[in-house]
Amino acid sequence: MARAVSTNRKITVTVIAWSIGFLIFFPILWTILTSFKTEAEAIASPPSFLFFEWTTENYGIVMERSNYFLHFMNSVVISVGSTLIGLLIAVPAAWSMAFVPGKNTKNVLMWMLSTKMLPPVGVLIPIYLIFKNVGLLDTRTGLVIVLTLINLPIIIWMLYTYFKEIPVDILEAARMDGANLRNEIIYILTPMAVPGIASTMLLNIILAWNEAFWTLNLTAANAAPLTAFIASYSSPEGLFYAKLSAASTMAIAPILIMGWFSQKQLVRGLTFGAVK
C-alpha cells in the first residue's frame, strides 16, 4: 500500500532530486550549449548560459575540416558489426547452456566471464603485433574481431539469463509438435526472446561504441571510430571549446538516446541478471 505523502515533503524531495539530476547532467548540457556558441563566447568570462548568439557553424566546421563522417561510419560498423556477429555466435551457445544444462555449465559460464577480467593491456602487445603482421591494424575488420571477442562473454551471459526465463516446456512442446532444432530456435525461441535479444543488442552497441582501449590502440586515420577521433582533440586543438563541443555532441548523441531507451535492460544486462 502506497502511503499518502505530505505535499511539502514531496516538493522538497522534488526540488532536491531535480537539482542533483541537473548537476549530474550539467557537463553534458554545458557541452551541448557550448557547441552552439562562437569560439569567443565559449571562453567568455563571465560565461554566458543561454543568452548568446546561437550558431551551428561549429558543426559545419567540424564536418568540413575532419573526416567526421568516416569516423562516424567506423563507429557504426564496428559497434553494430561486432554486436551482430557476437549474437550469431552467442544465441546457440546460450541455448545450449539455458536448455541443456550439464554438470559443467556453470563452470563454463564462469570461465567465459573470467576472460572478461583479463586485463586488455596484458594481451595488447601480441594482438598489436599479430594485427600488424596480418595487416589488420587500423582496419574495421580488425576492430570488429576484437570487440566481438571482448563482448562475447557479456552477450552470452545476457542471452543466457533471458533464455532461462523461457519455460523449457514450451520448447519441448515444439519438439513434440514435430519441430526440429532449427525450427525450434527460429519459430519458438527467437520470437519469444525478442525483447531479450533486442536489449542485449542495444547494450552491446553502447559498450562497443564507447570502447576506448582497443579502438585507441589499434587504429590510426582509417579505421578510427569516434572515440579515437575525439581523442585527437586532446592536442591543443581541444582548446577550441566550441568545436570540441560540437564534435563531442555528435559523438555522444546517438548513443545517449539509445541508452535512455534501454536503461531498464541495462541493469539486467550488466548485472548478469543478478539484480532485477
Binding site: E172, R175, M176
Partner: peptide, 30 residues
C-alpha cells in the same frame, strides 16, 4: 526416435502454449 518422429501429442501441465502466437497459430504449429 526423436520426439518429433513418434507421432505422439502431449499436453503439458503448464499448457506450454506459444505466447507469441494466436490460438489459431498455436494449433496450426504442428
Amino acid at each position: 526416435m526423436p520426439p518429433a518422429k513418434r507421432g505422439l501429442a502431449m499436453v503439458f501441465q503448464s499448457y506450454a502454449l506459444y505466447p507469441h502466437m494466436t490460438v489459431r497459430k498455436n494449433i496450426a504449429f504442428p
